[in-house]
């Protein structure tokens, strides 16, 4: 990943975090809200690979943990794991269908929320909220809507910030053509 893309992702993480704490709470539907940072991590994992996704999820989760007294480190862990799995799923799937990011986002939001609750339960946190399946479902659908906006945006930036070393020059192309002949 190029430095420029890393910087852009850093900006996306900070903006996503600020939106998550200031604007997103007002977009609740039936008590559930989207998770911009999770969607960002999943999109990065699909486009840049599992490690980049896990790192994005870890940093984004850590930001969220800073604002959550009681569960420090849990969001960082669950988001990193979900993003890593998104990257692996993408690598294992041979398809260019536009549905893939949507399905992965839906499934891994469900996974992330479940693991989050399980981790909190294992930690013995008092007054654990009841695991609301409807909330998780609405959150997952919400995240799918976010991915529709975020995926094309980051994909576009992905090409614009691609390493020049990765792009074949004209002389390379000619060399390959000669070799093929």
């Amino acid at each position: 990943m190029s430095r420029k893309r890393q910087a852009i992702l850093g900006l996306f993480i900070i903006t996503g975090f600020l939106l998550q704490i200031s604007v997103v709470p007002h977009l609740q539907l039936f008590g559930a809200k989207p998770d911009i940072l999770l969607v960002l991590a999943i999109v990065v994992a699909i486009q840049d690979g599992p490690t980049a996704g896990a790192a994005t999820g870890f940093i984004g989760g850590l930001f969220q943990d800073m604002m959550s007294p009681g569960y420090f480190g849990v969001s960082a862990l669950t988001k990193a794991m979900a993003a890593y799995m998104a990257g692996l799923l993408k690598d294992m799937t041979i398809t260019y269908s536009v549905l893939l990011p949507l399905i992965i986002t839906f499934a891994l939001t469900f996974f992330e929320q479940t693991v989050f609750m399980a981790s909190v339960a294992i930690l013995g946190q008092e007054g654990i909220p009841p695991f609301a399946l409807l909330d998780v479902f609405i959150s997952s659908v919400y995240n799918v809507l976010i991915v529709l906006l975020l995926y094309p945006l980051l994909k576009r930036l992905h090409f614009e910030t691609k390493d020049k070393s990765m792009v074949l020059s004209d002389s390379h192309v000619k060399q390959v053509e000669r070799d093929l002949q």
Binding site: I21, L37, Q64, P69, P129, D135, V136
Partner: peptide, 12 residues
Amino acid sequence: AQSPDNWQRLMV
């Protein structure tokens, strides 16, 4: 600010 996740009801 408000709680960033679905499992807590907090505000700053």
